[in-house]
Design a protein around this nucleic acid. Structure first.
Lengths: 114, 114
DNA sequence: CCTTTATGATACCTTTTGGTATTACTAATA
DNA sequence: TATTAGTAATACCAAAAGGTATCATAAAGG
């Protein structure tokens, strides 16, 4: 089986799929609605949606004869978390503050070491 | 020309390339050193490094007859920034705090609206 | 200069990807 | 039940990805 991280990064590699996620952030959409946003056939869009589903980035919910595609934000959060390891290399100050926040959210006390 | 964002996401789609970035976060490495970490030929590793370079995720610095591959954290930061638009959907509280931090870093005053 | 070591470049192969076109299935509805 | 709208599934194609093997190039060292 494909690891979750790999499925997500694979899905994010295509610009059309990243755009689809943006569209879905405005609300659930059927394939037809998504297809209207792109200059390609429904078949092609369907394949993209399938890959997004395999990466757990979206889920599908049947409603009558329609099938609504829904953004799955937590999967995106997981993917975004991959970058955390590198954040120390691009901004030590923000990194420190972020640590403070997470600590604060859990322990509700202030730890400020600079 | 390939847009920066697309080059980065394309490069990140492959698990070997993500691992390479992790290795490089420990310091610059030659192709031979990177290749030692994987069970594949130098030719294959070279291709991965080229794609990482095209995505601006690494840079190469010639030193004698060696060529050191170096992590480019700012490009990774840009890629990570893509996820920002979606953060509002996975954690409104952290999102609020993050806004507070950024505001604080720029204006040095506290805005706390819950 | 010749050898060794580190790397780059190219040809070639197989699998995956991204797309179209076509056909089949399913559910609301006249 | 016949029709129609919304999807799913499949066959097919061209191009890109990921890999190996091989040859070319460049620099350090005897």
């Amino acid at each position: 089986m494909i690891p979750a991280e790999q499925g997500a990064f694979r899905a994010l590699a295509d610009p059309t799929r990243r755009q689809i996620l943006h569209h879905l952030s405005g609300g659930d959409m059927t394939i037809a609605q998504v297809s209207d946003q792109f200059d390609m056939t429904r078949g092609a869009v369907k394949k993209h949606l399938t890959i997004l589903q395999e990466g757990r980035l979206i889920s599908v919910h049947t409603q009558g004869r329609e099938r609504l595609n829904r953004l799955e934000p937590m999967a995106l959060k997981s993917a975004a978390g991959w970058f955390d390891h590198f954040s120390q290399f691009w901004d030590s100050k923000l990194s420190t503050l972020k640590t403070v926040i997470e600590t604060d959210m859990k322990t509700q006390k202030e730890n400020n070491n600079d």
